[in-house]
């Protein structure tokens, strides 16, 4: 009986093991293989030593990714908090509103930001109208606003695209938090601020960690957002990796860049995870 069921469970698990092997382990090995070989298939560390040239790009990618993640956190946290306080009906409609843009194509979303931010775009025109008026009325000499192809535009693109990934995990954790913990803190003499600081925030740390990961990782490795909104001035590590595979045809350098990026992200997340010793059942 026991043997049979364990055989059954092994059979049931088999497709997933095969799947994991085919699409996770094998690709990882391939990346490692390319990273440590040259075009003749001979072992080399040259690819890795070439990476030094891209140190600035790595730093810029991580810096912008971090900036976008922190902005997401600042925007998402109050929103998640407010959502978690609302009644069930309002909650589901708010969740819907947050999810809805995620169902729109990613490219389309980024494209629409181009039209908003470009020099003749909606936002720029509006801002320049204000700038002109200030210059005329007050005799100031403010230069016209330029938004597209700046680092700021890239960060805006990241924040817009990845914000839901920050809101949802924080909101989920807050929703799961036992209401009586808040009451207990009030009961022990805590006003609203005390309760927020001493109970709400510490208990939502798993959600913050989870959201941080889900925003930071795609932000650091994005190439599309930086291409469309950052122009030639903002090249991120994702762009370079893409170039190696698409145009330069240097799979080996591309693979080693990916490899290093993966390790860097891993280190960032390990540091992040130090802040929360248990992750309250949220999947990172």
């Amino acid at each position: 009986m026991n043997k049979k069921s364990s055989l059954m469970s092994r059979l049931a698990g088999a497709p997933y093991i095969v799947w994991a092997a085919l699409f996770i382990i094998v690709p990882l090995c391939m990346v490692a293989y390319y990273a440590f070989t040259d075009s003749n298939g001979v072992f080399t560390l040259n690819n890795l030593s070439d990476i030094g040239k891209y140190a600035d790009t790595f730093i810029l990618s991580i810096w912008l990714g971090l900036l976008a993640t922190v902005i997401c956190l600042v925007v998402a946290y109050p929103l998640a908090y407010i959502m978690a306080q609302k009644g069930p009906e309002k909650q589901s409609s708010m969740t819907m509103l947050i999810m809805l843009p995620m169902w729109m194509n990613f490219l389309l979303r980024t494209y629409s930001w181009m039209t908003i931010l470009e020099d003749n775009g909606l936002l720029t025109t509006a801002l320049n109208f204000i700038v002109d008026n200030i210059n005329n009325l007050m005799g100031a000499e403010l230069s016209p606003v330029h938004l597209i192809n700046t680092r700021g535009a890239v960060v805006v693109g990241m924040v817009y695209n990845f914000l839901p990934y920050m809101i949802l995990p924080i909101y989920t954790v807050m929703l799961k938090t036992d209401r009586s913990l808040v009451e207990a803190a009030q009961d022990l003499g805590g006003n609203k601020l005390d309760v927020f600081r001493n109970v709400t925030i510490p208990l939502s740390v798993p959600g913050i960690v989870s959201g941080f990961t889900m925003v930071f990782v795609p932000s650091v490795s994005t190439f599309y957002i930086s291409q469309k909104l950052g122009g030639t001035g903002t090249i991120l590590i994702g762009d370079i990796i893409e170039t190696q595979f698409q145009t330069a045809n240097n799979f080996h350098l591309g693979a080693s860049l990916s490899f290093v990026l993966m390790i860097l992200i891993f280190i960032c997340l390990a540091v992040m995870n130090r802040f929360s010793d248990d992750d309250g059942g949220v999947i990172i």
């Binding site: 036992d178 009586s180 913990l181 009451e183 207990a184 803190a185 009030q186 009961d187 022990l188 003499g189 805590g190 006003n191 005390d194 109970v199």
Partner: peptide, 17 residues
């Protein structure tokens, strides 16, 4: 509000932090 009342509660499921 509860935090200004001179009484304390033991909750059903203790509600420990």
């Amino acid at each position: 509000p509860p935090h200004k009342r001179q009484l304390n509660t033991i909750f059903q499921r203790y509600a420990l932090f």
